[in-house]
Structures are given as structure tokens and as C-alpha cells.
Nucleic acid binder design. Sequence first.
RNA 1: GGUCGGAUGGCCGAGUGGCUAGGCAGUGGUCUGCAAAACCAUCUACACCGGUUCGAAUCCGGUUCCGACCUCCA
Length: 488
Amino acid sequence: MQNLKLYNTLSGNKEVFKPISPGSVSMYVCGPTVYGEGHLGHARPAITFDILYRYLKFSGYKVRYVRNITDVGHLLNDADDGGDKIGEKAKLLQLEPMEVAHYYTKKYHESMYKLNVENPSIEPLASGHIIEQIEMIKKIIENGYGYEVNGSVYFDVVKYNETNEYGSLSGRKIEDMLANTRDLEGQSDKKNQVDFALWKKASPSHIMRWPSPWGDGFPGWHLECSAMSCKYLGEEFDIHGGGMDLVFPHHEAEIAQCCAANNNKGARYWMHNNMITIEGQKMGKSLGNFITLNEFFNGSHNKLNQAYHPMVIRFFILQAHYRSTIDFSNEALKAAEKGLLRLLNAVKTLNKIIPKENSTIDVSLFSMNCDEAMNDDLNTPVVLSHLFDAVKVINSCNEGKHNLSVADVGLLKDLFNKYVIEIFGLQSFLNTNNSSDVSALMSLILDVRNQLKKNKDWTTADKIRDGLNNINIEIKDNKDGSSWDYKK
RNA sequence: GGUCGGAUGGCCGAGUGGCUAGGCAGUGGUCUGCAAAACCAUCUACACCGGUUCGAAUCCGGUUCCGACCUCCA
């Protein structure tokens, strides 16, 4: 575990991971803004950092994992029109903003549960930390990096940059950003185009609002993460994660806020997962080309040929390295489904293998290879490739082409338990024939059918097989008899 | 326009200066009354042009194309 290397956006390199306090890890990941259905893009960071969370825990670390819910409406755009996402949606549906936020939070949780994403240790709501955010703004103002204009408070990026490096995370230079002026939309109160809001005055029509020393308003777009990470993980913590699209300005602003308030950068390791693309373009809420998770689960989107089990989505995401884009297609998803079935079937097969005196094949390297890949910046696709190599071994043993000793069967069981179940969280979704009534019934049916087969009554035997097939039960005729299982 | 990243076989996706991940599909087998499933084996590759090197898909330079961020976004 000392060998775990993680890519740090801050340095642009893979770095050996060393937690601030040995044995425990503090980790913050940007969660969703709950104003719409969760989509595939939400699944990616959730699963990526779920893998990291599980891996760290499996490696013996005590992990405090904080993943926020953004239930405070951020502004739709930079113009001072007071519109926010949750508020707009609430108006549209004639609901309280909190009804909207709560509804989508619930939906998000349901999807995460289906994807077997573990709950974080703390899942703070932005709306529940308005006080902390106000306190942080006060500190920033006290330290001279915030200024108030007309009931709004802005972060003075230019001043901050005099003593700090604004842009160190995203590799931007403030001069370029200042030179790159965009059209001023309406009258802005900001001193400089690069400044960002810490507190926004609420226009009369703005429904999500809280009192503050600067009047009624709502916190700025980047503040909640700084305030909540600081509250639960301290001024300095180990890992901060999120999607790559958040690097700028969101995370850049977070760093600036933390430095301005606490003189501390916050996280040591910044990790960013890449985007999911659809037909080569980013899948995103704002682009309107997203497929919701529920649409995947029930196959209802017109781009989908079929429904995909949540575990297939999970596996699909793990098949690519988290820093690569991953392109959605039915073909790729279908391939993932098949691959996952192969992997999970091998887990089943492994339990049926009868150990022999000696092994005729070397299985000692699998575990080390998987660990190595995992330690190399969570290279899950390579881990999977090693697991599939092991699948080959398992299957050939099952076919009697190789033998495995008791100890080696144990090694493989440990390996699959560790990676497939514990760390990758790939639950078997193969239906198990565990109902004793059904089992008894089925063994009777198979018995009768075998008799028919002996009598060469193929018509009736096939009728039984086809009939069962229609109710999702599959008969498999092997040389040593027949077995059955629910279809996938 | 600025900043950054990418271009791998039919598809998806790893990777590395020499020993050609893996999955899916295809092909050939095994099994079977037939079928399905399953299993085994196996073919296609590194955008283009130069350079460095004994050797480059991997390093360097250039070209083309694509994407991301620069406005909320996972």
C-alpha cells in the first residue's frame, strides 16, 4: 500500500500517496447538484471514488469520505438575473425549491444504491451549511481578499494573485485570463472579470435565499465545498476529487478560498475523473445529450437498444481508466455485459472446482499483478485484464485441463473476493436458484425430461425446454446431465 | 483566440523503447439427439511525415483531425 501512486492534477504527475496522518485518509468529492435526474456522468465520479474509498479501506486505512449534495441553486449564468437551477425548476413544477432538491436527492441515492456505490461517511448539504459559508466569507473579507458591492460579496482574484498563485491547478495564467476579456453581460459589480462571487444578493424573484450580514442572498458557486471540507476534514486534508470539468473554475476557486481564509490550500492530492462522451461529445446536463441512469436501467432512452443492469454500467466504467474519456455506445455496453457475465460466471465456477493434490499451473502472480495495476493510479482496466487471465485458468481447471491445489484455489478465491466483490463492488446479478420449492420442482421437471430424452421423445423434451425458456428459465444439457438457471 | 488532452485492430479499451493487455464481435474447434449456453484456440493495430536509436506504436520535431476547459456542468 505504500506503493499507491495517484495522479495529482496539482503537479501533473503520479505521486506516491502519503496521508497526512498515517493510517487514516480524509477525502472530499464533489457530489451532484440536485436539480435533475442523475445521468451516466454522475455515475463516473461516484464509481471512481467509490473504488478508491473501498481500496483504501481494504488496505487498512481508516477513511473519512465526504461527498456533498449541492441543494443550493447556483446561478444559471453570470448575469445578475437572479435565476438559479433549483429555483427555476421549482417554479416550473410549482414546488418549493427544497421539494425539488429533496426529490432528486432521493433519486440520486436510489441510483447510487443500485450501482452498489457505498455511502460516504458524511454527505453534507450545502443548504445545511449556510452559517459555515457566511463565516468563511467573513474570514476572507477580514484577510482582505473579499469585497462587498450592493449586497453581494466577491473574491478579489487579482489581489489574491499578488501573493498566491491563482491558476496553479488548471495551469492558467491570470494575465491571459484578464487579457481574454469576454463580453460584459449587463452591469457587473465585480472589480475584475476574473473575480467570482462569494455571496450573491437575491433579487426579489429569487426564491432560495438566506439572511446574511450583507442582506438576503445565497452563497457563491464554489464556497460550499471549501466550507464543508474544512468543517469535516480540516483545513488540510488528503484527497479532493471530482470531474475534470470542475478543475476550472470550481476547484481553482476552492483553493483560492481556502488559502484566503485559512492560508492553507486544503487538499494535497487533487484527482479528476474524465468525462463520458456520447458520439464523441461530452455527455452533460447542459448539453442536453445525457442519458439518465434510470433510462439505462430500464432501457427507455431512444439511443438504447436494451436495458442495462446497474452492474453492467459499473463494469463499463471500470473497463476504462478513470482519466480517459469513455465513449458510450450500445455495442460497448453490450460487450461490457458479456464480459461481466464471463467474470461473474468464473466466480461461480471457482466454487465448484475440486482441488487436486498439486497445481499444474502457476497462479501466484495474479494477486501481485492486480495490486500493481491498482497501485498505478487505480488502473482498473489492467486489473480486469489480470482477472480475465485468471478466469481462463479457472475455466480450464473446470474443464479438467489443469489442476489446482487447495492452497491455490484459496488464493484465487481470495483474489476474486478482494477485487471483484470488495473493491470493484461487482455484485453478482445472476439470479440464484435458492428457493427450495423451485429447486425441488425443477429437479423433478429435469428428472422427467431426462426420462423423455432416454426414450428419445425429443418433441416433448423440447417442449419443456422451450416452455421454461419462455418463463426465463434456461436448461443446459451437458454430458453428465442437465442443469438449469435463471436467464441472465 | 488562449490553455490542456487525445488519435491503437470490426467495436470498446490498456500499455510500453525490443518479449505484440483484456473484453466484445469474427473464424476454427470441444460438447450435444438437436439447440442454446458454456469452454478452448485464433486472425486483424498502433493518424500522417521526418528524426534519434542496433531497434519505436512507445522518445523528439512537424502535419492533419478530434475533444475538453475558458459560462453552470460529474
